[in-house]
C-alpha cells in the first residue's frame, strides 16, 4: 500500500502531519512526534507581535525606575543586546532539521512587512523546508472592509514569496465572503499551498470573576465539516497543495479529508488529548480502512469525493445546507446509540 503524498512539493511518506502546537516547542517534542510517525512537522508559530511585545516589555522593565534616584540609577545588569529576537526559534529549526528526517515546516505570524519577510528569510536560512503563513488577524474595527482584509493577506503572500525560495503555504481564515475566490487569488499571489482553516481565539467569560478569559478549546471531530467542504470544492481547481486541519480525531477524519482532496492532513488536538503516540492510531485507522476497502494508494483516494468527482456537485452547495437541516433530526437519535463521543456534555 502506497501512503505517500506530495505536499508543497515535499515528498511525505503519508499524509498525516503534526500541525503547529506547543509540542514543537522543544527539540525533544519534535523528535517524539517524528518517532511517533508524523510525516512532517509544522513548528509552533513565531509571532512577530509577541517578539515585539517581549522586546518592548523587556525594554520597559529594564528602564522602569532608572535615572530617578541617585543610588539606583538602574536596577538590572546591563545586557549588551537584550533584544528578544527569533534566534531561539531559528536555533530550534536548525537543530530539528539536523536531528530529524522529516520535513520541518516553519510557521510565521507577522505584523509588519519587514517582520514577514525578514523572519521568513531567517527561517529559510535556518533550514525550514517550507513556511506556513499563519495569517491570524481579527478585524475588530468596524471600519475595516473585507477588501482591506483580503488585500492584507495577498500582500503578505506576495512579500514573503518574493523573499524566499522555499514553498509557502497560507493557513487562512474561513471567514471570507467568497472563500473560493480568495483561495484563487492567494494562489495567484504565489501561495504554494493552502491550509484550511485557522482557528481563531474566541474568548470565554468567567462568571465568578466577571472577566473575559482567553481560552482555546481543542477541536473535535464535528469541526471537520467546514474544511471538508472547502477542500472538496477547491480540489482540482487550484494549482496548489491543500492541507486540512481541524477535527482530526481518528483515521476516519483523515480519510475524509484525503477523499475531499487534501494532500496533507494536520492534527494537533488529538495529539494533545491522547499523546503523541496517537499518531500511530491515526495511521493505523487509515491503513485499516484502506485495506478493508481495497485502496492501494493515497493518490487513488485523493479527491475522490471532491466536488468535481462526486455525482452530485450541488451537494456541496445549497443542497448540502438543506440536507443538513433535514438530517439534523433523524441522526440525532442515532447518535445516541452510535456516536457517544458526540453526545458527551
Amino acid at each position: 500500500m502506497d501512503l505517500a503524498t506530495t505536499y508543497l512539493g515535499l515528498h511525505l511518506k503519508h499524509p498525516i502531519v503534526a500541525s503547529a502546537s506547543p509540542l514543537s516547542r522543544t527539540l525533544d517534542g519534535i523528535k517524539r512526534m517524528e518517532d511517533a510517525g508524523a510525516s512532517a512537522i509544522v513548528m509552533f508559530s513565531l509571532f512577530e507581535e509577541q517578539i515585539r511585545n517581549e522586546n518592548e516589555s523587556f525594554e520597559y522593565m529594564m528602564e522602569a525606575g532608572t535615572d530617578q534616584f541617585a543610588e539606583s540609577l538602574t536596577y538590572f545588569p546591563a545586557v549588551e543586546d537584550y533584544r528578544v529576537g527569533p534566534e531561539p526559534y531559528l536555533e530550534l529549526i536548525r537543530k530539528a532539521t539536523e536531528a530529524t528526517d522529516v520535513p520541518i515546516i516553519a510557521s510565521l505570524n507577522g505584523i509588519t512587512k519587514s517582520g514577514w519577510t525578514d523572519y521568513a528569510k531567517d527561517m529559510a536560512d535556518a533550514g525550514a523546508k517550507a513556511i506556513e503563513l499563519n495569517v491570524y488577524y481579527i478585524p475588530a474595527s468596524i471600519h475595516v472592509s473585507g477588501a482591506d482584509v483580503e488585500q492584507r493577506y495577498l500582500d503578505v503572500v506576495g512579500a514573503v514569496k518574493s523573499a524566499v525560495e522555499i514553498p509557502v503555504s497560507v493557513k487562512l481564515s474561513p471567514f471570507f465572503s467568497s472563500t473560493g475566490d480568495m483561495a484563487r487569488r492567494l494562489v495567484e499571489a504565489g501561495a504554494d499551498g493552502l491550509v484550511l482553516f485557522n482557528r481563531f481565539y474566541q474568548p470565554d467569560f468567567d462568571l465568578d470573576e466577571l472577566e473575559v478569559i482567553p481560552d482555546l478549546e481543542l477541536s473535535s471531530a464535528s469541526e471537520i465539516r467546514l474544511p471538508l467542504l472547502w477542500i472538496a470544492v477547491l480540489h482540482g481547481r487550484l494549482q496548489c497543495s491543500l492541507a486540512a486541519t481541524r477535527g482530526v480525531q481518528s483515521g476516519t477524519e483523515v480519510i475524509k479529508y484525503v477523499m475531499a482532496g487534501a494532500d496533507a492532513v494536520m492534527t494537533t488536538s488529538s495529539l494533545l488529548r491522547n499523546g503523541v503516540g496517537h499518531m500511530k492510531t491515526l495511521l493505523d485507522g487509515v491503513t485499516g480502512w484502506m485495506e478493508r476497502r481495497g485502496y492501494e494508494s493515497i493518490e487513488q483516494m485523493k479527491g475522490s469525493m471532491s466536488q468535481q468527482k462526486v455525482g452530485d456537485p450541488a451537494a456541496f452547495e445549497r443542497a448540502n445546507y438543506i440536507k443538513v437541516l433535514q438530517s439534523y433530526k433523524s441522526p440525532y437519535v442515532e447518535w445516541l446509540g452510535h456516536a457517544p463521543a458526540r453526545t458527551r456534555p
Binding site: 523587556f58 538590572f76 545586557v79 528578544v84 531561539p88
Partner: peptide, 12 residues
C-alpha cells in the same frame, strides 16, 4: 518577572 526572564538573555 524580568529578573527571571532575563536569564534567557544572560544565560540562555
Amino acid at each position: 518577572e524580568l529578573r527571571y526572564r532575563m536569564l534567557s538573555r544572560t544565560n540562555p
